[in-house]
Simulated scan of single mutants.
Amino acid sequence: MEEFLRIWNQYLKSPTVFLSFLFIFYTLSKIFDSLFYPLILKITEKTKTNIDTKVALAFRKPVKNFIFFFGVFLGVRSLPLSPELYLVTLRFYRSLIILLIAAGFYNLASTSSVLFEKLTEKLDFEMDKILIPILSKALRFIIFAISATIIAQEWGYDVNGFVAGLGLGGLAFALAAQDTIANFFGGIVIILDKPFSIGDWILTPQVEGTVEDINFRSTKVRTFAHALVTVPNSSLVKGPITNWSKMGKRRITFNLGVTYTTPRHKLQLCVRRIESMLKNHPEIHPETIFVRFDSFNESSLDIFIYCFTKTTIWGEFLRVKEDVNFKIMDILEQEGVSVAFPSRSIYFENSLPK
């Protein structure tokens, strides 16, 4: 019996067992990922909330890696290692577990929009779209910092001493990072003041386009030429920001010049008909409409036209404006009024020689 135990112990300490553990647990991880995990996802999809599905997806790869690394750890224990080396492998294994757990929460933070939606439902307040990605990035940074701190303590590093050491170079760091700090507080101003949100069309002294992302350092804007412009938050908040997406209506204004040969009654009739057309137009906002004979220009009698479209979308605005212009042309043609063009009349005191 003693001889059998001695042979068995030698067998357990052989590399063959180590490789066997690797193969077995690698196969188990593949089976878990391809067979059992789809079953878990089917169960979570039948629940009333999708949070459990997001959690399952976030921890899918960490759980799969945990099964394999557990086999690696068991295989390492079967090798003839010294107590010191075994302690090192144990620390490696603990660190891997911390990393896998942190990776799961890190992945979950990338889907934080779902988590924040549930949070806003519970707390009954509205969270701006611009705040969600920043909170997500902050949450991921916190997860990374906590996991790095735990791993450092696992390996015997004095984290408190490291933090205290940071205070000695804090002044130098602050001086070197003035722009970064300014951009950070610029991002805070954007979040609190809410001059725009993700997806809004904005105009600033630096750029015009659609906001795609905002983080602690900069704001990314996609121009109409499809170029992606990254603007530092500190410079963005210093200048005026026009948010075209916040318009409730879009303005149409111009002067329509008709010839000086237009009779007075025809001019009055054109003014009344254009104003009536705008008031009855289904896509013109009825609140603010002005059509007035405005001025005697150098070569025309100017009719001032001022109104707003109900739509603020650029393409639809152009279509409505075109329709208004065609209807004005119809009115002028029906009344026999001609549009003036720049011209000058020259009079000579003496007759020109023939």
Rank of each mutant, 00 (worst) to 15 (best):
E2K: 12
F4R: 14
L5P: 00
I7F: 06
Q10N: 12
K13W: 05
S14G: 13
P15E: 15
V17S: 13
F18E: 10
L19M: 14
S20Y: 04
I24K: 03
I31D: 11
I31P: 01
S34F: 01
Y37K: 11
P38S: 14
P38G: 10
L39V: 08
L39Q: 11
T44L: 05
E45V: 04
K46R: 12
T49K: 12
N50C: 02
N50A: 03
N50Q: 10
V55M: 09
V55Y: 08
R60N: 07
R60M: 03
P62W: 05
P62M: 07
K64I: 03
F68M: 14
F68L: 10
F73Y: 15
L74E: 11
G75W: 06
V76S: 06
R77P: 01
E84F: 03
L87N: 12
T89Y: 14
T89S: 13
F92S: 11
S95I: 06
I98H: 01
L100D: 08
A103T: 09
A103Q: 12
F105R: 13
Y106D: 15
S110H: 09
S113F: 02
L115D: 11
L115V: 12
F116H: 06
F116S: 10
L119A: 15
K122F: 08
F125W: 08
F125C: 11
L131Y: 12
P133Q: 10
S136P: 00
K137S: 15
I143E: 14
S147C: 05
A148G: 06
A148I: 06
I150E: 07
I151E: 03
Q153G: 03
Y157N: 01
Y157F: 05
V159T: 11
V159F: 03
G165S: 10
G167E: 09
L168S: 14
G170M: 11
A172G: 13
F173S: 13
A174D: 07
L175V: 08
A176R: 09
Q178D: 02
A182I: 00
G186N: 04
G187D: 04
G187N: 13
I190G: 01
K194T: 09
G199R: 14
Q206K: 11
V207T: 14
G209H: 10
N215D: 15
N215K: 05
T219S: 09
K220C: 00
V221L: 06
R222S: 05
R222H: 02
A225C: 02
P232F: 01
S235G: 06
N243I: 01
G248R: 03
I252D: 07
F254A: 08
L256I: 01
G257L: 02
Y260L: 04
V271N: 06
R273Y: 02
E275K: 10
E275A: 13
E275I: 02
K279P: 00
H281M: 02
E283F: 00
E283M: 04
P286D: 10
P286E: 07
T288Y: 04
I289W: 01
F290I: 15
R292W: 02
R292A: 06
F296N: 15
N297S: 05
I303F: 00
C307R: 04
T309F: 00
T311K: 00
T311R: 03
T312Q: 01
I313D: 15
W314G: 13
G315M: 07
F317C: 03
F317G: 06
D323T: 07
V324A: 09
V324S: 08
K327L: 10
L332P: 02
E333D: 14
Q334F: 00
S338I: 05
F348S: 14
F348Y: 09
P353I: 10
